[in-house]
């Protein structure tokens, strides 16, 4: 286990270095004079311009500039937003909990319904249930999620009036952000609105997380189905049947436990899909998360925010994948060393 941990740590450091190098190079490619981008319209050649040039460290070699950049990043200094003049890191983490809340909820929906549908399809292979699961997962996978989101808003919010159109909570509730997770914060503010605020936050969460969950759900359903079909034809399933293990236990314990192994890998790959999807979903539902924050930064040409945001998201994807690899080793006994 220690060996696996060390290996993961090495991969982590290597990918982080890779990402920062790519990042640093991209920053060099941003069009326009960096001095003007940072300090407004200075005329090259003037003393002011030269001072600014030195202050930004542009007179140093590229390697030194990179090392300075790394030092700043490691110290948590990602620069300041050119629009709000707040620290990029602080802004990112103000908006991040909303994205995490949305993504966690989405992945929960995707897992529960995706695995459920996949198992159901595998057990009823080549029946109408199987066909229904396969075809709806294909539709779910191919549908543009911004369009799907709008359709759901049209149906559930506008026509049926069941869910709110946008945001995390209604304006009537005044919730103090303690953790940044609305579901938790509404519970922390308990006596103030009883459960009304929590319920309202939950209602706000449902539609966006369903939209965000759609693609991962489809992928998980298909993956579970094929993994389960393979596992169910294995010899040890026959052994379990011969022993007299109940069908329910064979499917949900013996078979699913083995089918989970390939599924975990897919889950890791879906994490980046999820964060990309979050950008679209948050924009549609006016969800105040990092996705929406990044889109706004792009429209305002707020380069430090864009760069900092993308770097942080990349780091999170790496972290998630490292966790998933560890999880993979934990649930697959064959990955552990023989004793």
């Amino acid at each position: 286990m220690i060996k696996i941990l060390l290996k993961q740590l090495t991969i982590l450091i290597l990918s982080f270095t890779g990402i920062t190098i790519i990042f640093f190079s991209l920053a060099q490619l941003v069009p326009g004079d960096p001095v003007i981008l940072h300090y407004g319209n200075l005329t090259p050649g003037t003393e002011q311009y030269e001072n600014a040039y030195q202050e930004l460290g542009l007179d140093e070699s590229l390697v030194r500039q990179y090392l300075i950049f790394i030092k700043d990043v490691l110290q948590g200094d990602l620069g300041r937003s050119t629009v709000t003049n707040h620290s990029v890191l602080e802004e990112f983490f103000t908006f991040f909990p909303a994205t995490i809340e949305l993504s966690l909820f989405a992945i929960l929906i995707a897992l529960v319904f995706g695995v459920g549908a996949g198992v159901l399809a595998a057990v009823n292979k080549n029946t109408w249930i199987d066909n229904l699961v396969i075809s709806s997962s294909l539709i779910g996978y191919s549908m543009p999620i911004f369009w799907w989101g709008m359709l759901l808003i049209l149906l559930f919010s506008l026509n049926l009036g069941l869910t709110p159109v946008a945001g995390r909570i209604s304006f009537v509730f005044d919730i103090e952000p303690v953790t940044g997770f609305m579901l938790i914060d509404t519970l922390l503010a308990y006596p103030k609105y009883e459960f009304a605020a929590f319920y309202d936050a939950l209602l706000h969460l449902i539609l966006p997380s369903v939209v965000l969950a759609t693609v991962p759900l489809a992928v998980i359903a298909r993956m579970t189905r094929s993994a389960m079909i393979e596992v169910l034809s294995a010899d040890y399933i026959l052994t379990a049947k011969a022993k007299g293990v109940s069908n329910f236990k064979i499917i949900w314990v013996h078979a699913l436990r083995n089918a989970l192994i390939p599924l975990v890998t897919v889950l890791g790959l879906q994490s980046s899909v999820l964060l990309t999807g979050a950008i679209l979903t948050e924009t549609i539902f006016a969800w105040p998360g990092v996705g929406k924050w990044m889109v706004e930064a792009i429209f305002r040409r707020d380069y430090p925010s864009i760069q900092g945001g993308v770097l942080l998201i990349a780091v999170f994807v790496i972290l998630i994948n490292a966790t998933v690899d560890l999880l993979y080793a934990a649930i697959n006994p064959r990955m552990r060393r023989p004793e």
């Binding site: 294995a234 010899d235 040890y236 026959l238 052994t239 379990a240 013996h254 436990r257 083995n258 192994i261 649930i331 697959n332 006994p333 064959r334």
Partner: peptide
């Protein structure tokens, strides 16, 4: 069965 290695659940 013939293959003892595959006749037992690898995860348990």
């Amino acid at each position: 069965f013939q293959e003892p290695q595959t006749s037992m659940n690898p995860c348990f």
